[in-house]
Every structure is written in C-alpha cells, then in structure tokens.
Write a protein that binds this DNA or RNA. Sequence first.
DNA 1: TTTTTATTTGTAATGATTACAATTTTATTA
DNA 2: TAATAAAATTGTAATCATTACAAATAAAAA
Lengths: 147, 147
Amino acid sequence: MRGMKANLEYITNKLKNKNIRLSHQRLKVLEYMDQHRIHPTVEQIYHGLRDEIPTLSKTTIYNTLKTLMEAGLVKSIAIDDNETRYDIRTDSHGHFKCLTCENIYDFEVNMDSIKIEDLNGFRIYARDMYFSGICPKCIEQKRETDN
Amino acid sequence: MRGMKANLEYITNKLKNKNIRLSHQRLKVLEYMDQHRIHPTVEQIYHGLRDEIPTLSKTTIYNTLKTLMEAGLVKSIAIDDNETRYDIRTDSHGHFKCLTCENIYDFEVNMDSIKIEDLNGFRIYARDMYFSGICPKCIEQKRETDN
DNA sequence: TTTTTATTTGTAATGATTACAATTTTATTA
DNA sequence: TAATAAAATTGTAATCATTACAAATAAAAA
C-alpha cells in the first residue's frame, strides 16, 4: 500500500508527465479515480469530493475529465444508457455490467489479437467490448430469495 | 428484391408474430428500419417519415422503438456519445464507428465463442463490440486532400 | 511581488429522453 | 356493420446529463 505522501507524488507526477498544469481539483479528481476503481460517474466523483472541496463544481469535473482523457490518463465508458462512466485503467480490457446491481466489472480480453476480416482497410483506433447480464453475487442473492 | 406488397406483408407479419398490435406508425417505423440499415437515430427516423406521416410525433417513435426492442425486433446501440442508435439486425455482430464521417459499419464476429476466464459464474445476456477509427472511404479522401 | 495565463465556478442554455393527459385509432363484441 | 372497449398517438411540459460562457480565483512566469 502506498503511503499518503508517496501517493500524492505519484498522482502529481502523472499530471506533470503529461504537461498538465497542477491544481487542487485535478489532483483530487485523479486521486479519486485511482482510489475508487468503480468506473464512477461525474455524479459519484462530485459526491465523493464534495466534503473535501466544498466549492467544487460539476463543471470542473467535466473539464478535468476532458483534460485527462485528452492526455490518455482516463477513458470514457459508454456502457450506461444515460450517464457516462470513467475508467482510470487505460490498457485493453472488457467491461461487464450487471443488470441487477448496476456494478461494472473489468475482464481481461485481448482485443488487439482478434482479426476482423470485414475491417480490412479500416484504421482502428479504439476497441471496446461490453457485456451485460447478472453477476455471481446477484445470482446468489436471487437464489436465496427464491428459497 | 421484395415487391411493395410483399414487403408490407413481411413487415406486418413481423409485428403479428410478436403479438404487437398493428398501427400505421409502427408499420412505417419498422419499414424505415428495414429499408435504411444505417443504424438510425430517432431524429433520422423522424425526418425520414415526416413527409409520409405529417402528424408523426417523436414520442411515438420512442414508444414504438421501445415496443420493438422489448419484442426483440430491434436493438439499441450505445456507440454514440449523446444519441442512441437503433439496429434492425438482431443477430450477433460488431459495430465500427468512423470518427470522420460518423457512419457506423457492421462487421461479422462470433462473440459467443469467445471464452472469458474472468466471467466464469457470470450469466451473460448480451455481448457488444464497438470499434472506432477511420473508414477506408475517409482514409482515401484524406489522402487526396493531402496531395 | 507583480504580471500573465489558465483554471474554477455558478448560472444559463442545450438537447435527448420521458411523463402525462386528451384525442384518435385499432380491435372486439353484439 | 355499428357500438364499445382497449390501446396507441400526439403535443406539451418536465427531467436530467452535459456544455457554453463570463466573472472570479488560483497557478506559473517574470
């Protein structure tokens, strides 16, 4: 486990390395993303930081996420119908959404190795895989309820 | 190519088979989807049918698409950031979005055969694959512009 | 410390989608 | 076919995520 100071340094360097100017809000948003790997919505980030930063505005969160996305430090997930979710993991992986508890799970899958005949001649920049269904926890809960 | 009459019958039967009550609007929306396989938005369907059905309301299109989705006759595509797109193809296939012309291309891919270790114990209902990048047409156009 | 530049913030605007009640249409029954 | 019951359509208003914008504030440079 990283110490508090080391973690702040780690977050700070992430921004510095991308030539993003430092600000209290940016550090806190990025720290929140790093510590809450639940693919949060803007609303969740907002509520999570509201106590620490009482003046925080949602617009700032939108602005910050846009900046972080352009730098490649976060990615957006379009698995939800109305709210965008954000992911601090930027390596290739899939997402599973449980239709019962609404949680989003990561899964490992090598999408780059999948050859798609129909896409010969296409320049592919991004690959996303979204599955949905019921997670084991909710299957188990349903089973208990049924008894 | 299906004749006009045969096509109407085909569309009508699609609804009847799913026990969906017939209406002028439902037939026209489904016909539009069948004849315009461009993964249209509500806006596109609305403009496409406005001349034929001057009283048409967008709410009706939303209602109709909801009904058709529940019956499994159409599927929604969340590849767009703000507008939902709808697909009359309900068999398993992937989608590629060109970031330049915004067109969405279908591609064949057998997602059901992909085994995901991390999802053992998960009940999977839907699998979606979204790629994005530049399509051959736009790559070519860019090349010509650069000369 | 001063100045310049960029960020944050609150408010208002936008735009897709949904809620709702009155009207119209479709299906059923006599 | 006509009358009745049930469901679909429509226009308007509401909702809600996201964006636009300009003034206030904070960070970096001089």
